[in-house]
Amino acid sequence: MRPEHCSTRNHIEVWHDRALPSGPERIGFWVVLRGSVLPILVWAGVGCFVYVLYNPLVAMVLGGLFALSFVVGFGLRRRARHSVRCSVYGAVGGVLDKSMAGF
């Protein structure tokens, strides 16, 4: 894959498409996070809820699951010969996107 096409709309999917640029162009990490505001807020609320209601250990396990999902997503993208930047952005967007599938 050519580096100039790696960090494009076609390779990074985030939960809200309207936050992305209208065509294939390089996007920044802030755009990925802005497109994922709802999942970030939902999971931050869930983390705070389990921290207060149950135990900090439960919140750490939840954070560990997200970290594991990120590492797996990053590894799969690197194996598919994406750039490091594209792999990081795609892993963050992918974890947040797939985590909201149940909602």
Rank of each mutant, 00 (worst) to 15 (best):
R2D: 08
R2A: 03
P3M: 05
H5E: 14
S7W: 06
T8K: 12
R9W: 02
R9P: 04
N10T: 00
H11W: 06
H11M: 13
I12C: 06
E13H: 10
E13K: 14
W15S: 10
W15I: 00
H16N: 13
H16D: 11
D17A: 01
D17I: 00
D17S: 05
R18M: 10
R18N: 13
R18V: 05
R18S: 10
A19V: 07
A19G: 03
P21H: 08
S22I: 08
S22N: 11
S22R: 09
G23R: 09
P24S: 13
P24G: 12
E25N: 04
I27W: 08
I27Q: 11
I27V: 05
G28N: 14
G28C: 09
F29T: 03
V31S: 10
V31E: 06
V32S: 00
L33N: 11
L33T: 03
R34D: 13
R34P: 01
G35N: 00
S36C: 14
S36H: 03
V37N: 01
V37L: 14
L38S: 09
L38E: 15
P39T: 06
P39M: 01
L41F: 14
L41D: 01
V42N: 08
W43I: 06
G45V: 05
G45W: 03
V46C: 08
V46G: 02
V46I: 12
G47Y: 00
C48N: 13
C48Y: 10
F49R: 03
V50C: 04
Y51E: 11
Y51L: 07
V52H: 04
L53S: 10
Y54N: 05
N55M: 02
N55D: 13
N55P: 01
P56Y: 02
P56T: 07
P56F: 01
L57Y: 07
A59L: 01
A59F: 05
M60V: 04
V61M: 02
V61T: 02
G63W: 04
G63V: 02
G63Q: 06
G63L: 06
G64T: 03
G64C: 02
L65C: 11
F66S: 07
A67R: 02
A67M: 12
L68A: 15
L68E: 10
S69F: 09
S69T: 09
F70I: 08
F70D: 11
V71R: 11
V71F: 11
V71Q: 10
V72K: 12
V72M: 12
V72S: 10
G73M: 10
G73A: 15
F74N: 03
G75S: 10
G75W: 00
L76I: 15
L76N: 11
R77H: 09
R78Y: 14
R78M: 05
R79L: 14
A80Y: 04
R81M: 14
H82F: 14
H82M: 02
S83R: 08
S83V: 14
S83K: 11
V84K: 09
V84H: 05
V84I: 07
V84F: 05
R85V: 08
R85K: 05
R85T: 14
C86T: 09
S87W: 11
V88W: 08
V88Y: 08
Y89W: 06
G90Q: 10
A91P: 00
V92L: 12
V92F: 13
V92N: 07
G94S: 12
G94I: 15
V95P: 02
V95A: 08
V95W: 03
V95I: 13
D97C: 09
D97S: 07
K98A: 12
S99E: 07
M100C: 07
G102P: 10
G102Y: 14
